[in-house]
Write a protein that binds this DNA or RNA. Structure first.
Lengths: 275, 275
DNA sequence: TGATCTTACGTTTAGCGTAACAATA
DNA sequence: TATTGTTACGCTAAACGTAAGATCA
């Protein structure tokens, strides 16, 4: 039995005539005529009532169409299942709360597993726990050690937040600041900063954040405005955007995070070996 | 996708080598080699680990076999379902409590529906109700009108039991008998008599019944022994077995039954038209 | 050396499209 | 007359088996 033939049967059932079915499937009518005859042989029963120039499904034919749909759907599911399984064997999925750790993790994994696809995405911390629970990610990067015992944890990197202001800014003369000092000022923010975004909004509820989704626009605004922005010890300022600005460390504990790598136990040994 | 190819994949998985699979399927090894390559194309993923002269399923391959079994089983079920459905459209199944009504019903149905297969079987009354409930039979023949309202009933035939004894027998002089008169005598019984068998045992618990499954042996015993046996107004004595015996009507109501034809409402009109 | 898998080659088969035909609305 | 389904015919592509090659136990 050929699934193509079942497809033709179903198309005929949907279209009502062999001609329309042929047109839809981009094949000739005679081909469908022959296929229908062949299907009757395969099933071993009559499936159609034939007039001189018209053909329709009989009761058995309708039943056969029903079953054909079932078979095709099963086959389609099978293909998807196998492909998904294969893909999962060749993919490492990483959910991270922030971009900076990925700059170190991705190259390391890529060179350690050159024939694997490494897929990463930034997500909120609750979403990352969901990914871990559902095994939708193999590796998670969290801003603290994982809540649950059944995940393996290793501390990985520290990231320390600083605020960047022009030399003329009110804050420029301070050697350190706290969120309460900053609360009320408005900031420029890049869009791809993971959990930092949420954290800023929580700790500086009186501030407003001008989020720039376009990297070019963000850089242009940093250069041309006097609005404060943020950087960290891990950020690379390839455009030397911030050389003209004063960097002031934020001392709150929330602003100085240790990233942890978390994953299910069985994967941990390999990960630890890498870092 | 071709189900034949999946069959080959499964056979390979079961046999362990391509050669053995080829042997089992009565095809050449190269054919299987090519089929496996083709399946990898179809699935779009690698399914095997290949040595220079050995081939085994990889993890994805094992998954694929699993799915292939699923598909084949679905397809197999589909074929069976369609064939069974078609058969049901061309078959009238009759469950009867006794043989005599069938002698009239079967010829009538055969000539009314010449292209239908008519299948009949003798069953106990409870089994007949089960067949009606599950729609496993289209027509039932019961020794009374059907218990439930949702079945249609028509009275069909009467059958009256008589006992047959040699002229020299103790009972021979009676003009009628009851089961209590007969209780304690031993009887010859044919095997294919439906509910009569059970009914005799219930009404004559002290009697023993010598059931002859072979028709020839039954006739021989009737001829050569003086044991009483039974007949009815509907029985045809083609061998003139009973001409030498005295027939005495059994007057109990249980011994004089009216057969009813019963079926689901929708079938009744056609049945009534016949009788 | 025997078993196993793959590749190469030639043949056969089976599937497809075009064209011709029959029948209907 | 335009549309629909079937049959006939010829071609192409795909599937098969035999044979040969390579590798391992």
């Amino acid at each position: 039995m050929d699934l193509n033939e079942l497809e033709q049967l179903i198309t005929f059932a949907d279209m009502g005539t062999l001609s329309l079915a042929a047109e839809k499937l981009h094949i000739s009518q005679p081909t469908i005529t022959r296929t229908m005859q062949h299907l009757e042989e395969v099933f071993g029963v009559s499936l159609f009532v034939r007039g001189k120039n018209k053909i329709t499904l009989n009761d058995t034919g309708i039943k056969a169409v029903e079953q054909a749909r079932q078979i095709l759907s099963t086959a389609d599911n099978a293909l998807k299942t196998v492909r998904a399984f294969d893909k999962s064997l060749h993919t490492i999925i990483i959910s991270s709360c922030a971009p900076a750790p990925l700059w170190y993790v991705l190259p390391a994994l890529s060179s350690a597993y050159p024939d694997m696809t490494i897929a990463s995405s930034l997500k909120s911390v609750p979403a990352i726990y969901e990914d871990l629970d559902s095994e939708l990610c193999q590796l998670a990067i969290l801003p603290h050690n994982a809540k649950y015992d059944h995940y393996n944890n290793i501390p990985f990197l520290e990231e320390n937040l600083s605020v960047c202001v022009p030399a003329t800014h009110d804050l420029a003369k301070r050697s350190s600041v706290t969120f309460s000092n900053l609360n009320g000022f408005n900031f420029l923010l890049g869009s791809e900063i993971g959990f930092w975004d949420e954290m800023c909004r929580v700790n500086m509820p009186a501030s407003r954040f001008l989020v720039q989704t376009d990297q070019f626009e963000f850089e242009e605004l940093v250069r041309e405005s006097s609005l404060p922005c943020f950087t960290t010890n891990l950020a690379k300022d390839s455009q030397n955007l911030l050389t003209d600005r004063i960097k002031i460390p934020v001392t709150d504990s929330d602003a100085n995070v240790t990233y942890y790598l978390a994953c299910h136990s069985q994967s941990m040994a390999k990960i630890v070996a890498l870092f």
